[in-house]
Design a protein around this nucleic acid. Structure first.
Length: 289
DNA sequence: CAGACGTGGTA
DNA sequence: TTACCAAGTCT
């Protein structure tokens, strides 16, 4: 084991958070659910919802037996609710095509709805200990600083970044699995985007970015996501109203959430199109059955 | 490949 | 208060 691996793994053993989906008693399904929920969503908001889901649907078959609408309701306010729909669809696929057992391989995971390259690698590595490089935003940032000597990773994932992640992965499978989660944790706790705690970093002495004097990011400004006035905001309001209602919602209850009728109708139609909302007779709307 | 897609905490 | 940020995926 190289010094780099040794330092990071030692740090992880001492500093890792005690997250429920990382505990020894976490099931592959629990890991899977956590990875979907954690997409673009902070740990603190995921934790309570994850516990609810694990209690209610401890296996893929349990979720598959429910209606997709119940998954959307239980998703609560985690955001990007299509993830709930895809998680439900994945539970159905796992139940029908894999005998209810979460598949282990990257390729089998990748074809499940809502699973991209990051999640396929993460589930394969974290739930099954398979030696596969995981590349998420934390790991990309750590690599950009530690090896690249720059403050931020590129705007989009490059082939060079994939190659680097593969090169840095320890040979030993068990060590490799821990390495992935350790680098991710380092990025989440120490090598953070805004105010990195380099004084607490186990590899600051060999960090290319530190050695270069921690230069500020000098590339083009990244466009922030718009929110106010967008269809996303309207969709959020509409779905929240429907999600929090006991039964089907009448049209007037939706009319009041947004003033612009054209945009309101467009947003509602897109929710129906996505399968997040089901139109019912009598101009009523509900979560999908 | 750039843009769409939620939500809420923090500086 | 505006703007950025949080374990991405899909088209």
């Amino acid at each position: 084991m190289s010094d780099l691996h040794d330092e990071v793994l030692r740090w992880y053993a001492a500093a890792a958070r005690d997250l429920p989906w990382r505990r020894a008693d976490a099931t592959p399904w629990g890991v899977y659910v956590s990875e979907i929920m954690l997409q673009q969503t902070p740990v603190s908001r995921v934790e309570p919802v994850w516990h609810d889901w694990m209690h209610r649907w401890p296996t893929p078959a349990d979720l598959a037996a429910e209606s997709p609408g119940e998954a959307v309701r239980a998703w609560d306010r985690l955001g990007y609710p299509r993830r709930a729909l895809r998680l439900h669809a994945a539970a159905v696929a796992i139940t029908e095509q894999h005998n209810g057992v979460v598949p282990e391989s990257f390729d089998q995971l990748l074809v499940l709805p809502g699973v991209g390259t990051y999640t396929a690698a993460a589930v394969s590595a974290f739930a099954f200990g398979i030696r596969v490089p995981v590349v998420d935003t934390n790991i990309r940032r750590v690599h950009a600083r530690l090896v690249g000597g720059v403050a931020q990773a590129a705007a989009s994932l490059t082939a060079a970044e994939r190659d680097l992640a593969a090169e840095l992965l320890p040979e030993d499978p068990s060590e490799a699995a821990t390495w992935n989660v350790a680098v991710m944790e380092l990025g989440a706790l120490v090598c953070t985007a805004r105010a990195p705690r380099c004084g607490a970093c186990p590899v600051a002495d060999r960090c290319a970015w530190q050695l270069a004097g921690a230069p500020a990011y000098d590339g083009p400004a990244r466009r922030g996501q718009k929110w106010a006035g967008t269809d996303r905001q309207v969709r959020g309001r509409l779905l929240r109203t429907i999600r929090e209602a006991d039964g089907p919602v009448e049209r007037p209850a939706l009319d009041v959430v947004w003033h612009d009728q054209t945009q309101r109708e467009r947003a509602l139609s897109s929710l129906v199109e996505d399968g997040l909302v089901e139109p019912l007779p009598g101009d009523r709307f509900a979560l999908p059955r």
